[in-house]
Design a protein around this nucleic acid. Structure first.
Lengths: 205, 205
DNA sequence: AAATAATTTAAACACTTGTTTGAAATAAGT
DNA sequence: ACTTATTTCAAACAAGTGTTTAAATTATTT
């Protein structure tokens, strides 16, 4: 078994357990037990528990955020000067969404945690600070009747509702027999909801 | 020191630590250390760690949810038959908000956790299942162009954005020098945002 | 004041935590 | 084939986990 094989096995297993039981509630020993490895293997390949956690996170977040900026930059060049709010919301949410539904359940679970667990979301958002700032600028262009503070807060509301969508927490209060929207419909709901929210207070034309 | 004094001391200290470090990351020993008590005191007064956690939660959630139903019932009697969406959003969010800003920081921190930590939010939402269902009915009345599923999902988006607001996670991506809205303004933002989101797709009149 | 009940305490229980160590096992390079 | 590197492993480390027990201390009642 070469070095990247065991490294990936650790990453995959950690990801699965993080998704299932939470990050803080998952011990290194639980990970190696399920991966059929030794506890020391984690420290050999990653250095510490914290470093492992970070690598589990960024393996998923990096491609998503790259796609976000790619879409934003493409729109900024073609559709100048102002990009419609709806398109901005799409550029921000769709990379998460498409990645989300292409991946097995454990990846979905992890991504839900990334966007809901407070002690995880905080550093995650800080790490992608520049991307958030670029989107803030674009949103401000698209909604000039808002102050920068309002834009920031509304973006955080959008992120909050996205977290809820990812975590599938909705069934928690409608029981098991409650009908569920199909992924594409659910996503359209999120887009509509947040576009309307971000547009609130817009001057009538 | 009579029995309710120590019980409250445990509740208060637990609440403060839960808010600061998270529920799962707070040990019973950390609680009693700060409260100047013995570990066994917790088991004597509460029975188990889980029972303590539950009592910490419900001490705050009960009055809030009582106020929610009170406001809903009052509106259902006076303003029949259909209650405007904006008033429903207010009836749902305002009890949390007013309670939130009347309390010291540790209570705010706890309430943020209650509405963001996945493994906490799930049982919390299940426990207040009936209240959520009543609001769902009212929302469906106020927005008859939506399906029950849409209403449920949009309510969950609203809860998600509320959680973000409570957790004050917004500064995480605007740095420390970013301007912050005053509590009342912030609350009006949340109301506006979610009213617009819930109204999305409404037939023009 | 004596007896009963309620509360607090130190100590132990069995078990889990992240991290480190040094010796085995495997792979790569010469 | 022999010698380096790299990777794995069992074992131990010190500290922390929720829970229980039985004795000591308070409060309350008779």
């Amino acid at each position: 078994m070469n070095t990247s094989d065991t490294k990936n096995k650790i990453l995959d297993t950690a990801e699965r357990l993080f998704a299932r039981q939470g990050i803080g509630a998952t011990s290194l020993r639980a990970i190696v037990r399920e991966a059929g490895l030794n506890v020391a293997a984690i420290h050999y390949h990653f250095g510490s528990r914290e470093a492992l956690v970070l690598e589990v996170f960024n393996r998923r977040l990096k491609p998503i955020n790259q796609q976000r900026v790619a879409r934003l930059e493409e729109m900024e060049q073609t559709r100048s000067p102002a990009i419609p709010l709806n398109d901005l919301v799409r550029a921000f949410l769709e990379p998460v969404f498409s990645y989300f539904y292409d991946q097995p359940p454990q990846v979905r679970g992890l991504m839900a945690r990334l966007h809901t667990e407070p002690d995880v979301t905080r550093p995650v958002l800080q790490q992608y600070h520049e991307i958030l700032q670029r989107f803030q600028g674009a949103f401000l262009n698209a909604a000039p009747w808002l102050t920068p503070e309002q834009v920031r807060y509304r973006m955080s509301f959008m992120i909050g509702s996205m977290g809820i969508m990812l975590s599938g927490r909705h069934p928690a209060f409608c029981g098991k027999n409650g009908a569920r929207l199909k992924p594409e419909q659910l996503f359209e709901e999120v887009i509509q909801y947040n576009t309307a929210g971000l547009s609130a207070g817009a001057p009538k034309k």
